[in-house]
Simulated assay, not measured.
Amino acid sequence: MKSDAFYDPRDGERYVHKWGYADTRFEFDGPRAVRVTGDRYKISGFRMPYLIPFVEEIIKLPISQDDLIEEWVSYDLPDQVSNEPFVADVRAALKAEQIASDAENRLAHSHGQLSVDEIFRVLTGGSFTRLIDVVVFPESEDDVRAIVKAGVDHDVCLIPFGGGTNVSGALAVPEDEARMICSVDMRRMNRILWVDKENNLACIESGIQGKELELRLEEQGLTSGHDPDSIEFSTLGGWISTNA
């Protein structure tokens, strides 16, 4: 692992809706100081008495433990829009565990990380007019072909999903979309198919996350040369599609 990397190479449980790992968060350490939990980052465990005053000066608002909001855990979600011919074709092409329509997956795939419009509403129990109806997890190029063909054949809206870190609203579900909406989660397609060192070329599946990509390239003495602040969670396909 690169000695100057700002991220931890270990994997871990992610928060379902917000950015980061479940073992890492800011906590109050007294009324005017904070501390980062866990041991993933260089700042973990250190008491920071100057962060709150600094942030208050920037945003011109006071910060207090008394203002903490308990995160919402139960949601009143809109009904799913169904397209049975599409679902039948997808079920014929994929394994059962590659398809999900439970409430948690629907909500988690219906937003990125745009703080005010997406995350705050999710974490505080805001209302939702429209959500993803079904999530699919392709594992091969053939799976993707089958999903896209079914979407075209049955007029279903497909929204690709990578690491869920987008901050430009690209994952926002159109509220006036009457068709069934299917999220295509690419993260199971994470293989490096080949590397051509002589010509500095590689063929890599779009669902590989940045951290995993760097770790596996480093084994060959290589790097992608791309180091976004979302590298722990964002995917190669997301970088390309959003020109990150």
Rank of each mutant, 00 (worst) to 15 (best):
S127P: 06
S127R: 15
L193S: 04
P9F: 03
A172D: 12
P174A: 00
L215C: 13
L193R: 10
S82D: 07
I208Q: 00
E214M: 02
V136L: 12
Y41T: 02
H17Q: 04
F28E: 13
D196Y: 00
T235V: 03
R14F: 09
C203Q: 15
D227Y: 15
G163S: 03
F137S: 12
I181D: 10
L107P: 13
S241P: 03
V144N: 07
F54D: 13
G237P: 10
K42A: 14
L158P: 00
P31C: 02
L236I: 04
C182T: 05
L51D: 10
G125R: 04
W19F: 14
K42R: 14
P31V: 01
R106F: 07
A172E: 11
V195G: 07
R187D: 04
R10E: 08
W72L: 07
D11F: 08
D67T: 11
G12C: 08
Q113D: 02
L215T: 05
L236E: 04
D89G: 01
S206C: 13
Y7S: 07
L158Q: 02
A150W: 04
P78R: 10
D67Y: 06
D196P: 00
R35C: 09
V16D: 13
R145K: 12
Y41E: 13
R106D: 11
K2T: 04
G151C: 05
Q80L: 12
I240H: 11
A178C: 12
R130N: 09
D4Q: 15
R25H: 06
L123D: 09
E27Q: 11
T165W: 08
V156I: 09
F28Y: 15
P49G: 01
I231C: 01
V90I: 15
F54K: 14
V148F: 03
V173P: 08
K149V: 05
Y50D: 14
W72H: 14
L131S: 09
F86W: 13
L222D: 04
D229H: 10
N190M: 03
L107S: 08
D102S: 11
P85S: 08
V81H: 14
T242W: 08
K197D: 02
R10W: 02
I43S: 08
E205G: 01
W19T: 06
D227Q: 12
V156H: 05
L131M: 09
G125H: 03
A170T: 01
G45T: 00
G151M: 13
N166W: 01
I52Q: 01
S168G: 05
R32A: 11
Q65T: 12
G125K: 06
D227S: 12
K42E: 13
E141K: 08
V55M: 14
W72A: 11
D143R: 00
I119M: 15
D23R: 05
Y50V: 04
T223C: 12
D8A: 02
G151N: 05
I63G: 07
V135G: 14
P9D: 08
E214C: 03
I147P: 11
Y75V: 06
Y15K: 10
R14T: 11
G169H: 05
S241K: 05
W239A: 08
F26P: 07
